[in-house]
């Protein structure tokens, strides 16, 4: 499959900050991809370069095979960006804003799609309201609609759910998923990691301008601790035979590594053998947040465990 987004040896130096330090990344057409990283990691900078808002210091960037500098017209036509900053033009209503945005992309009669966008983003009754009068979350919805007026094959959302209520989060993701099913490639940044975990097939993690992880979501979850068994016992010490499996403690609970469910039987047998009673037991899996923290703080760093 062709690459929807391709970054090669990408560097960005600001006068004081080396914001991107050699990024190589390929996102396939039709992927639902998450770009994660702490504040200041370089996510927005990377997106700005995709969008042609910032110029790369070094390296090459293409969208749907079009170089963002040399073939900027095709590249920009193929890209829809929801910016992180909540921006709007105070002079125009929601519908005017969307009509203008369509016009910039050369679409003169786009009202059918605009209406569909408004309906899907819960903006239908705000169509004739000035954007400056909308609440923050509503403004964010308009930004999403603006990014989609030209039905771009590649959609980039820079923290689209910051400050957005639960209901819109749900309907927004429902809508974006539908677009993804229809073949649109989605690149998403978010600080809500459970969103990335449930939505995205593949995840890249960025730290201080470098890619520190890039894998399928399920692989990351497995690698980041994998399955585990949480036990609450009637004793305060874990039987010696199980100690090698211990990965952490959470109060009275022991957290054991459980790479394979087949090991469960053996663990229970060891407990019986030691004459230890089980008060409570739960199976679990490390979530993306834990994996994220682990990767960001370097492997082996102890992170607070949740039950």
């Amino acid at each position: 499959m062709a690459a929807a987004v391709r970054l090669r040896g990408l560097h960005k130096r600001f006068p004081r900050v080396h914001a991107l330090r050699g990024i190589d990344l390929e996102i396939a057409e039709g992927e639902f991809f998450a770009l994660l990283g702490p504040n200041g990691a370089g996510k927005t900078t990377l997106i700005s370069i995709l969008a042609g808002l910032t110029r790369a210091t070094d390296g090459s960037v293409s969208i749907m095979g079009f170089d963002v500098a040399r073939q900027y017209r095709q590249a920009r036509r193929a890209l829809g960006v929801v910016p992180q900053e909540l921006v709007y033009d105070p002079f125009f209503t929601v519908r005017e804003t969307l009509r203008l945005q369509s016009g910039y992309f050369g679409l003169r009669r786009n009202d059918a799609w605009i209406d569909e966008l408004l309906a899907n983003l819960g903006l239908a009754d705000k169509a004739d309201t000035y954007t400056r009068l909308l609440s923050g979350g509503m403004k964010r919805r308009v930004l999403v609609a603006q990014a989609l007026v030209h039905k771009p094959p590649v959609i980039v959302l820079d923290e689209p759910t910051a400050g957005v209520d639960v209901e819109l989060r749900q309907s927004l993701w429902h809508f974006i998923r539908r677009l993804n099913r229809d073949g649109h490639t989605i690149l998403l940044t978010t600080h809500y990691l459970e969103e990335a975990e449930t939505l995205c097939e593949r995840v890249a993690m960025l730290k201080e301008g470098r890619l520190v992880a890039l894998d399928r979501t399920e692989n990351l979850l497995r690698g980041g601790g994998g399955r585990r068994l949480v036990l609450e016992l009637d004793v305060t010490e874990l039987p010696a035979s199980l100690r090698p499996r211990l990965t952490g403690r959470d109060g009275a609970r022991f957290i054991l590594d459980l790479p394979d469910y087949g090991d469960l039987e053996a663990i229970l047998a060891s407990l019986r053998q030691a004459g230890v009673g089980v008060c409570d037991m739960a199976l679990g899996q490390a979530d993306l947040e834990e994996v994220f923290l682990k990767i960001m703080h370097g492997v082996g760093h102890d992170t607070p465990e949740q039950a």
Binding site: A51, L53, R73, V81, P83, E85, V87, D89, P90, Y104
Partner: peptide, 14 residues
């Protein structure tokens, strides 16, 4: 200043 300049920088305008 308001940042909405991106609306005209993102489209394929020369």
């Amino acid at each position: 200043i308001t940042g909405n300049i991106v609306f005209v920088l993102l489209p394929p305008l020369s």
